[in-house]
């Protein structure tokens, strides 16, 4: 288990080619101002939009992995919760894991509180419910790496808490997780590492405590240090 290794990965004009390693079982938060390139970095890592560079997961070059096998290596949860076709929840979740046993599926549906919605069409769900469906879709094949774009947006406070718990558990179970967020408190509390993105570059990459001390957040977001000092209190201990 070697996690995710990216060499020279970028998106032309959006994110400068960078090297990045996410250790297996690590939980990393991606923060940065609007338009800084959080989604672009996630896209580049997931192979979306013809990125440059090379991404390996557990030593396997992602480009050589056929779509049938890929869901077990990489899960991607997009920021957009829009879905073009009104599939039923169960059909959508199992689309990339048709071989998943019904026990695995119902355990996951249960964990994401989707059991009562299994037969609902996704166009009849709320945005928050659709978020949970998209996250469950990515989780079902049990991917080695999970990339999530703003997974906490649209979730109510209880579900933010439950999802944070779930991601923590999955990371402890060996899943490599990277999520973008604007919630600095949550990033500091949940992640064991924070990537700060600014103007299409990697501006900082360190554990939460170091990021807080360095003052880089205030610099990147262009605010007084005191204005976001509150989030220090979110640090555990």
């Amino acid at each position: 288990m070697r996690g995710l290794e990216a060499r020279g990965v970028g998106l032309r004009g959006r994110f400068d080619a960078s090297d990045l390693t996410l250790a297996a079982g690590s939980l990393t938060a991606l923060v940065g101002p609007n338009g800084a390139g959080k989604t672009s970095l996630l896209h580049a890592l997931a192979g979306i939009g013809r990125p440059q560079g090379e991404v390996t997961i557990d030593g396997l070059d992602l480009r050589n992995i056929p779509p049938r096998v890929r869901p077990r290596l990489l899960g991607y949860v997009p920021a957009s919760r829009e879905l073009a076709w009104p599939l039923r929840v169960h059909a959508l979740i199992t689309l990339t894991a048709p071989e998943a046993s019904s026990i695995t599926v119902s355990a996951l549906l249960d964990a994401m509180a989707l059991t009562d919605l299994t037969e609902r069409r996704v166009d009849t769900l709320s945005t928050g419910e659709r978020s949970r469906v998209l996250i469950a879709r990515a989780l079902l094949p049990g991917p080695a790496v999970l990339l999530l774009d703003e997974p906490f947006a649209n979730l109510d406070p209880l579900w933010q808490l439950l999802l944070a718990e779930r991601l923590g558990e999955d990371a402890r179970g060996g899943m490599t997780i990277l999520f973008s967020t604007h919630d600095l408190d949550l990033a500091a509390r949940l992640a064991d590492r924070i990537l700060v993105i600014d103007r299409g570059c990697l501006a900082a990459d360190a554990p939460p405590a170091e990021i807080v001390e360095s003052g880089i957040i205030a610099r990147v977001f262009g605010v007084e240090r005191d204005a976001i000092a509150g989030w220090r209190r979110a640090l555990p201990g």
Partner: peptide, 18 residues
């Protein structure tokens, strides 16, 4: 199957290697 995966959105379809 490539068109089926488009039901998950273009981003997810590409992340699956399409």
């Amino acid at each position: 199957s490539a068109l089926d995966r488009l039901a998950l959105g273009e981003e997810v379809a590409q992340s699956l290697g399409d």
